[in-house]
Design a protein around this nucleic acid. Structure first.
Length: 385
RNA sequence: GGGUCGGUGUCCCGAGCGGCAAAGGGGGCGGACUGUAAAUCCGCUGGCAGAAGCCUUCGCAGGUUCGAGUCCUGCCCGGCCCA
């Protein structure tokens, strides 16, 4: 079967495995760089390959509006269109219900978006979101969900119920007009920070036999403690023999904290977005390359890093590029930041296979200073080790 | 030599035409960014207090006025035109 998930090893809640797709295997845990508009901004597919990326994410909403999913289908599908022959996951547009809340109106049947490009109206329903993803031809397609503000109980409850109704329609549409052997539909568990809603959602979503399950609606404004607590309690509600995908999460410390809690897939815009805004991620924390202190710093972004940026350029040079708004600055920082996250994922996978993940995770977190945190700030205990 | 336009916040451009510590840019400095409306967004950018205050700023020197970056006189510097 195409979308077979094989567990290779576990340590505590952490898992290492393989998810098979028509465009090759995904070794998990895995981090997926985000390429919303069929491009990981500032990074060519060749570079993604060199960085060891296996799975990348693209977006249904954006590609439907431009250039159009029918066009992409006619040009041979998303893989051919964007020159990426590895696995692709497409988000359904559900997140845009949240991020474009001012431009969208939701009802029981679907969502009407005011196109952020030209103001025209577009109707998204579960069926439409699935059909678009069929046209795109991505390996993993996501159910059309509603991602609510996480701490408003009434809103979250309504979103959970709507998400469930929509999931059933997505599954039906995929069975009717899609090819489950070519594209895997993942369902999404919602519920905000409310455990009884997460439980209810997990029960419903896992009640459908799907090749993978996602946790949505986290890192959308709630505290880190709430994120981790919710994750700790939600992951065990998902079946062990299917991949678990935590949507939209991906600071370095989040990767470690999430894998420690049993997450297999993650994606996040953070490494590439902060790169374009001048920040480098390191194992010690995030540094802002615009800062004056790096103006004459001959060191690489991160000592010991083996990425193209760090093996060829100084902090002083990268800072210069950033200050001068040179495109290469975005490219070099994006490459470095993705390299770090992808390397961390590989290291975690190796540690799980070796049975040394607990040590790896605690060592990593001990050396990492999260943004905005005070030195010595308390941290949630890791549920491993 | 004559005419004319102009010199603005100790980085630059620049609004201002009697109530101004003085618009707006750029640049500089700092912060934010988590299923991407993001190469975006938000602060600060004369000094001291740092709330309500005080002090020093608009080429230089005088003058008019309750009050001058703004009006008048002279000078210095720059652009253009005429000689």
């Amino acid at each position: 079967m195409t979308f077979r998930f094989t567990l290779e090893a576990t340590e505590g809640m952490a898992r290492a495995g393989v998810f098979h797709t028509p465009h090759g295997p995904i070794l998990t845990p895995v981090f997926a760089p985000v390429g919303t508009q069929a491009t990981v901004k500032a990074v060519a597919p060749r570079d993604l390959r060199d960085l060891g990326a296996s799975l990348i994410l693209a977006n249904t909403y954006h590609l439907h509006l431009r250039p159009g999913d029918a066009l992409i289908r006619d040009l041979g599908g998303l893989h051919a269109f964007m020159g990426w022959d590895g696995p692709i996951l497409t988000d359904s547009g559900g997140f845009q219900v949240f991020s474009l809340a001012d431009l969208s109106e939701i009802d029981g049947d679907g969502v009407t978006f005011r196109d952020h490009l030209d103001g025209s109206l577009h109707r998204f329903t579960p069926e439409v979101a699935i059909q678009i993803q069929h046209n795109l031809g991505s390996d993993i397609i996501m159910a059309f969900d509603q991602c609510p503000v996480p701490d408003d109980r009434a809103m979250v409850r309504a979103a959970v119920e709507r998400t469930h109704r929509w999931l059933a329609r997505c599954a039906e549409e995929h069975a009717r007009s899609g090819d489950p052997g070519r594209q895997a539909l993942f369902g999404i568990v919602q519920g905000g920070i409310f455990m009884e809603l997460r439980e209810e959602s997990a029960r419903f979503v896992t009640g459908l036999d799907l090749p993978g399950y996602a946790i949505g609606g986290l890192s959308v404004g709630e505290s880190k403690a709430d994120t981790y607590d919710t994750l700790t309690q939600t992951v065990p509600l998902l079946p062990a023999d299917k991949p678990r995908y935590l949507m939209g999460v991906g600071s370095p410390e989040d990767l470690v904290e999430s894998v420690a809690r049993g997450v297999d897939f993650l994606d996040c815009v953070l490494p590439t977005r902060v790169a374009r805004n001048g920040a480098a991620l390191t194992r010690a924390g995030r540094i802002n390359m615009r800062n004056l202190q790096y103006a004459d710093d001959p060191r690489p972004l991160e000592e010991g890093c083996t990425c193209y940026t760090c093996t060829h350029f100084s902090r002083a040079y990268v800072r210069h590029l950033v200050k001068a708004s040179e495109i290469l600055g975005h490219q070099l920082l994006s490459i470095h930041n993705l390299h770090l996250l992808l390397t961390i994922m590989r290291e975690m996978r190796a540690a799980i296979l070796d049975g040394t993940f607990a040590d790896y995770a605690s060592a990593f977190l001990a050396g990492y200073q999260p943004v905005g945190s005070q030195k010595g700030a308390r941290r949630n205990p890791l549920p491993v080790g």
